[in-house]
Computed example of a mutant assay.
Amino acid sequence: MEFDVESWREELVSYREQKDEQFEVPHSSPLGPEGRKEFDGIEYFEPDPDYRVETTVELDGSDETVAMETTADGEQLYERTARLHFEVPNASGEPTEGTLVGYTRVDQDEGSLFVPFRDKTTGQQTYPAGRYIELHYEGALDDGETFPLDFNLAYNPFCAYAAAYECPLPPRENWLEIAIPAGERYEE
């Protein structure tokens, strides 16, 4: 199936508008009453279809539990589920290979991968603790399976907006040596 850039862009803009609306509603917002009053929308990089890439799944059969440190000096347990291999443009526009690990929360059902990551925008244009992507899939993942990985959907954890939240920090294996100028930005 061919990728329709205009439809994708419209869906992304609509998704971002809906997220901004959720941030204004008390029960779905990480912001307190004062923060909601001052809120004028999440900062984003411009939508860029070059950062919606095809990823190839390499299943991790180790059943290893990973204890991710959190922003509140705690830890949360995840299982390493798959390595996701992809190519993104580097600073000069040339394709560069990257790999991120997708995790499943211990005691969570299949169907979703949690992909926390840092890149060369971290702490400069994006949240200093890293960003997240959630990938949803039907059934079981297969080795060699491919599907879209859209960095335009990369988001800041709730702890970027309120210290009351405890958010997992991306493990070292998910620190990319390239910039991913896509998704949510962060300005203090």
Rank of each mutant, 00 (worst) to 15 (best):
Met1Leu: 13
Glu2His: 14
Asp4Ala: 13
Asp4Ile: 12
Glu6Pro: 03
Glu6Lys: 13
Glu11Pro: 01
Leu12Gln: 05
Leu12Asp: 03
Ser14Ile: 00
Arg16Val: 03
Glu17Gln: 12
Asp20Ile: 03
Glu21Arg: 14
Glu21Asn: 08
Gln22Asn: 11
Glu24Gly: 06
Glu24Lys: 14
His27Ile: 11
Ser29Trp: 13
Leu31Lys: 09
Leu31Thr: 08
Pro33Gln: 07
Glu34Thr: 12
Gly35Thr: 06
Glu38Phe: 06
Ile42Arg: 01
Ile42His: 00
Tyr44Ala: 04
Phe45Trp: 12
Pro47Gln: 07
Asp50Arg: 15
Asp50Asn: 15
Arg52Ile: 13
Val53Glu: 09
Thr56Arg: 14
Glu58Trp: 04
Ser62His: 07
Ser62Val: 10
Val66Thr: 13
Ala67Tyr: 05
Ala67Asn: 11
Met68Arg: 00
Asp73Trp: 06
Glu75Asn: 02
Leu77Cys: 00
Leu77Glu: 11
Glu79Ile: 01
Thr81Val: 03
His85Asp: 09
Phe86Ala: 11
Val88Asp: 06
Gly93Pro: 09
Glu97Leu: 08
Leu100Val: 15
Val101Gln: 02
Gly102Pro: 01
Gly102Ser: 06
Thr104Gln: 09
Thr104Gly: 04
Arg105Met: 00
Val106Thr: 02
Gly111His: 11
Leu113Asp: 09
Phe117Gln: 06
Lys120Met: 15
Gly123Arg: 13
Gln125Trp: 02
Tyr127His: 07
Ala129Val: 04
Gly130Trp: 00
Tyr132Met: 10
Glu134Phe: 07
Glu134Met: 09
Glu134Ile: 07
Leu135Pro: 02
Leu135Lys: 10
Tyr137Glu: 04
Glu138Arg: 11
Gly139Asn: 12
Ala140Asp: 13
Leu141Val: 05
Leu141Ser: 01
Gly144Asp: 07
Thr146Ile: 00
Phe147Ser: 11
Pro148Met: 09
Phe151Met: 08
Tyr155Arg: 05
Asn156Met: 05
Pro157Asp: 08
Ala162Asp: 15
Ala164Arg: 15
Leu169Gln: 02
Arg172Pro: 06
Ala179Trp: 04
Ile180Val: 14
Pro181Asn: 08
Pro181Gln: 03
Glu184Val: 06
Tyr186Ala: 06
Glu188Tyr: 00
